[in-house]
């Protein structure tokens, strides 16, 4: 009885570990190359919001507020410039685009372009809230 149970456990566990089939492989969540920059941007916006709030509460002097706000805006501009730089690099093919067969969410890059940015006329294969080229809202284009 004990031996049977022991064998059962051992075989079961080993089978579970070793029988990895191709369809078991997890589909990784898409990761944008901008993710860390976006996070940085978000945290700067959050800092700005906090700053504004604290200023309204009267916790800091005008001078402190203006100075810090300017610093944060400059930092934000730096991050945005970095985003543009990465974008340009991708466009120039310096950063390898990910394998197309895995990228189900964003079809093949050469597919028919259906969505056009109203501001800069850039074309995209999927609906976007904001243009990947100029960053302006693209709501109108989806209609």
């Amino acid at each position: 009885m004990t031996i049977g149970l022991a064998c059962l456990i051992t075989v079961g566990v080993l089978a579970f570990i070793l029988s990895v089939r191709a369809r078991d492989l997890p589909q990784p969540e898409p990761v944008s190359p901008f993710q860390h920059l976006d996070e940085r941007k978000a945290s700067i916006y959050e800092n700005l919001r906090d700053l504004q709030f604290e200023y309204r509460l009267g916790k800091m002097s005008d001078h402190d507020y203006q100075q810090t706000k300017l610093d944060l805006q400059k930092e934000l501009a730096g991050v945005m410039a970095e985003i543009d730089r990465v974008k340009a690099e991708i466009a120039a093919g310096k950063i390898p685009a990910p394998a197309p067969e895995l990228v189900k969410t964003a079809a093949a890059p050469k597919g028919p372009a259906k969505y056009v940015c109203p501001s800069c006329k850039a074309e995209f294969v999927q609906p976007l809230k904001f243009c990947g080229e100029c960053g302006k809202p693209m709501k109108a284009a989806e209609a």
Partner: peptide, 11 residues
């Protein structure tokens, strides 16, 4: 805020 999005780059 506007998330940066670029088509064709997902991972």
């Amino acid at each position: 805020y506007a998330r940066t999005q670029v088509v064709g780059i997902t991972s």
